[in-house]
């Protein structure tokens, strides 16, 4: 309908130009322009455009919310997996380690399906076998700390790699400090991690 409005004068001009060439058919009656239906049509177009824009906006927000959720989840997961560090030949938990473990406790409470393997590690000093035991002792003291908050002991398994899997392969104090640690591997419920809030 809208197209015909523009076509009408064009057709008329064509008729004038070609009039002398052959007998033209009689021109069709000019259409009647109905102002009400035109307005209704224009309104419906506008509404459709607005609805589409709104849908886009909602989708964008949804995408953003999902991205944020994933980011938050990754952060929660990273907190859960973040290593803690120990002093030389010690299995006692340092204050910074305890702070991090409390944040893990909050996450673990909100995520009851999650299970962890706690891996104790040692620096290269001391005997190979003694360090295997030291790693176990470190892992065990982490488990004790976590279960002390009422978390089920069945959710944690412990192991030790002694001095065998260093984070940094070097023989100096800063490497040793990085190697005296407990690592955390999620063994169950990796898709059911919930933020504590």
């Amino acid at each position: 309908m809208i197209v015909r409005r523009f076509i009408v004068p064009v057709l008329a001009a064509t008729l004038v130009v070609g009039a002398c060439k052959k007998d033209p058919p009689p021109p069709p009656a000019p259409p009647m322009v109905d102002q009400d239906s035109l307005r209704a049509y224009q309104d419906s177009v506008r509404r459709a455009q607005e609805a589409e824009a709104e849908r886009q906006r909602q989708a964008d927000m949804e995408r953003q919310r999902e991205a944020e959720r994933l980011r938050a989840m990754a952060a929660v997961r990273a907190t859960l997996e973040e290593a803690i560090y120990f002093d030389y030949d010690e299995s006692q938990l340092r204050a910074d380690a305890q702070d991090l473990l409390r944040r893990k406790v909050d996450i673990l409470r909100a995520s009851p399906q999650v299970q962890l393997r706690i891996e104790g590690h040692a620096d290269e000093r001391g005997s190979t076998e003694y360090n295997l035991a030291l790693g176990n002792r470190r892992a065990e003291s982490v488990r004790q700390f976590l279960t002390g908050f009422g978390l089920s002991a069945a959710r944690f398994n412990i192991t030790s790699y002694g001095e065998e899997r260093p984070q940094v392969r070097a023989s100096n104090e800063s490497a040793w400090a990085r190697n005296r640690r407990a690592e955390f591997a999620i063994t169950a419920g990796a898709n059911a991690i919930n933020s504590p809030n």
């Binding site: 104790g120 295997l132 035991a133 176990n136 002792r137 892992a139 065990e140 412990i158 030790s160």
Partner: peptide
């Protein structure tokens, strides 16, 4: 716990070892 540091008894049947880090290390 972790099963570590095995050693044979001279009888050739018995293994001694350490269970480390468990509830009864």
């Amino acid at each position: 716990g972790g099963y570590i540091t095995p050693a044979y008894h001279p009888d050739g049947q018995t293994l001694a070892f350490s269970v480390s880090g468990g509830t009864r290390s």
